[in-house]
């Protein structure tokens, strides 16, 4: 290796070094995959015609947590380790090392949409109006009960209420050309369809503390059927059939407090302990990771498939 090669190599190596805080903290990335079945449902049109629709708007928020491990027997699906059981029949909480979401429950500016919208699922505001009005047969209405017929009306409601001037500030619809194809469209939503027909989305665990505790967990509880260590577990909170409501959303006294004119309600937000008590929020129709991913290093880029449908 010549000196002209060696010097930049040394410089680059040194540039990549920094003070060791004694903390392993990284932005850990990966992908979440959903089978088409997770976003496919039968619908009946206004005219009574039955059809099956596969649509990303059927994907609710995806919750991802990294736990010390998962185990069988607590729920019908693999479930994160839980703490001590103090009351018979009531599981202890589980405490993840970290977590994130793909798509967030977002306040959509009219009470009707409280706890019904997830960001990154709708191309534009027309897609929201169309989804509820034409697909779910449950049109979006304003505070007076009048049907909202256009996306522009809904957009303007958000602009007025939130005092903003762009879709990028609302952050419900697709608002930026993520894939660089020159257009803001379906390809810029959180989940995009792959060649194999599955839908995938990227996620980032921002500033995640990483712990390799697999040996410790093995020592404590060595069942071979379980996944031990820094383990990624997740599920998709599917919108309720009919109403489209999300079971992880607290719409009672949480979220944006709308208090204008004759409007008084809350916009809703997730419960604060969604990752601490997932079994309480996972319900029929949700899709859970059937094969949680166990990390081997902080540089892993897992692909977590939510392939187990909760049916009971």
């Amino acid at each position: 290796m010549s000196r002209y090669t060696l010097i930049p190599v040394v410089v680059a190596t040194l540039a990549g070094c920094h003070w060791d805080e004694g903390l392993v903290i990284e932005n850990m990335v990966g992908t979440v995959v959903l089978a088409p079945e997770a976003l496919t449902r039968p619908f009946v049109s206004e005219e009574g015609v039955e059809s099956t629709i596969t649509d990303p708007r059927l994907i609710g928020p995806v919750y991802l947590g990294v736990y010390s491990g998962v185990t069988a027997g607590i729920e019908p699906y693999l479930y994160p380790y839980v703490g001590p059981q103090f009351v018979e029949g009531v599981s202890g909480d589980t405490y993840p090392y970290g977590g994130t979401t793909v798509g967030d429950i977002r306040y959509a500016c009219v009470e009707f949409l409280t706890c019904k919208l997830t960001s990154g699922r709708f191309v534009d505001f027309d897609a929201i109006v169309d989804w509820f009005g034409n697909t779910l047969q449950d049109p979006v209405v304003d505070q007076f009960g009048n049907e909202i017929e256009t996306g522009d009306f809904l957009r303007q409601a958000c602009y007025d209420l939130l005092e903003i001037t762009s879709d990028a500030e609302v952050r419900i619809t697709a608002y930026e050309d993520r894939n660089g194809d020159g257009a803001v469209d379906e390809g810029d939503l959180d989940f995009v369809v792959r060649e194999d027909g599955k839908w995938e989305a990227e996620f980032t665990l921002w500033q995640q503390d990483y712990f390799d505790n697999s040996a410790k967990v093995e020592e404590d509880d060595g069942s071979e059927d379980e996944i031990h260590g820094f383990t990624l577990f997740g599920w998709m909170d599917a919108p309720a059939v009919g109403s489209g409501e999300l079971s992880t959303c607290n719409g009672e006294v949480a979220g944006f407090n709308e208090n204008t004119y004759n409007n008084y309600f809350y916009g809703g937000r997730p419960y604060l302990d969604v990752l601490n008590d997932p079994g309480f929020y996972i319900s029929t129709g949700d899709w859970v990771s059937g094969e949680p991913y166990q990390y081997e290093s902080e540089w892993d880029t897992p692909e977590l498939e939510l392939n187990f449908e909760v049916t009971e």
Binding site: P61, Y63, G65, Y95, P96, Y97, G98, G99, T100, T101, V102, G103, D104, I105, R171, F203, T204, W206, G255, R269, P270, Y271, L272, D273, V274, L275, N276
Partner: peptide, 13 residues
């Protein structure tokens, strides 16, 4: 633990 953009809490370690 926050959601994807940090706008709300979804759990605690």
């Amino acid at each position: 633990i926050y959601d994807s953009d940090g706008s709300t809490v979804i759990g605690s370690r």
